[in-house]
Design a protein around this nucleic acid. Structure first.
Lengths: 190, 190
DNA sequence: CCATAAATATGCAGGCATGCATAGATATCG
DNA sequence: CGATATCTATGCATGCCTGCATATTTATGG
């Protein structure tokens, strides 16, 4: 038996799929484009993803959720006045590096619910986890639980929205303004 | 010459296209589905939109922008404490009525920039106008211009983000929490 | 080195979407 | 009513995408 069990190629495909989802959305991401962008062949894709396109897309979204959630869990250990600018700066840098073509893949998954319900549901659960993490961070700073939950929801929603505004306007201004206002708001809530 | 000049059918097609964009995004909206949903024939579509799919999609986005912008301009004549809940309530009702399948078509246009740059650019301009309107409203309530602009950006971004969170979670909670927090924030800023 | 499995490459059928062309139906005006 | 323009319907060619099947290559274990 050979059993190479080489996960590198599969991971590379998953990453490429994520990148394409960020640019073209769930519906706009095809196996042919993933093949072109990752350099393999169509046969390889069905080897790594027997479930076809659905499995490939779902894995890409799961992978992105795992990665981003870990990042947010880390940010939640910092003071909010640091965590919020860091989170926004991450998206700003990603947007700018792609010339404002690549947004949040989780938001893309959320909006692809009509054709792909599973990634959309996963996105909903991921957002809930992110809100929880932010709320915990705010509770640690002395904000009551109910208010912390509401402010956490506002923060996640505002950052996701700011990324969309930034892509449409090809500008980092929305993200910067939103970060400033969120920090000021959390500061005032303490 | 007959020259019926009957814009009703064309308008119905434009509206159907908008609805499909809200559910399936720009890339997920095809002429065949528009024909199926609006009841006409493919020939009619090319009669009304000689530019093909691109013209149809662009007109749908322009129409949506015109309509929503008029609504926001009206909201901006009200006190912010009324305007913000009304705006959120509109999206909440639309989301709920569609069983959390239909979001904001302008956000969908913003995210479709890779394949359709024109609607994405229009979305960016529309967002700028909405932010201006909100900022004017806040200036009227005594908030300094710079702060008003930042708060207006935060409000538009947060509402758009809350709609996405709501669709993913199939819940109106994100929109309600965001509306409450935005009202409290504007109230405190005066 | 050889047998076996992993990984890659390619072809084919079916379905869908676009764009265009070509008819046919409908309505309006003189 | 007849002529003209609008509107609708349908077919064809092309290309893309998926899923599956079928080689072919590569690598590993014995």
């Amino acid at each position: 038996m050979a059993r190479t069990a080489n996960p590198e190629n599969r991971d590379r495909i998953v990453r490429t799929t994520r990148d394409l989802i960020r640019r073209n959305g769930i519906q706009g991401t095809t196996m042919l484009e993933v093949v072109k962008a990752s350099g393999g062949s169509r046969g390889s894709l069905y080897h790594y993803f027997p479930g076809g396109r659905a499995e490939m897309v779902e894995d890409a979204v799961r992978s992105a959720i795992d990665e981003y959630t870990a990042g947010i869990e880390y940010l939640a250990t910092l003071p909010a006045a640091q965590a919020i600018p860091l989170m926004v700066e991450f998206w700003r840098a990603e947007a700018e590096a792609s010339d404002y073509a690549a947004g949040c893949p989780i938001a893309a998954a959320a909006l692809g619910g009509a054709s792909d319900p599973v990634p959309s549901r996963l996105a909903g659960e991921a957002f809930a986890g992110w809100i929880d993490a932010f709320a915990r961070m705010l509770v640690n700073e002395g904000i009551p639980a109910d208010r912390a939950r509401a402010l956490g929801t506002l923060a996640i929603a505002a950052v996701e929205g700011a990324v969309i505004l930034g892509l449409a306007q090809k500008s980092s201004t929305p993200m910067e303004l939103v970060a400033d206002q969120l920090v000021a708001l959390v500061d005032a809530a303490q």
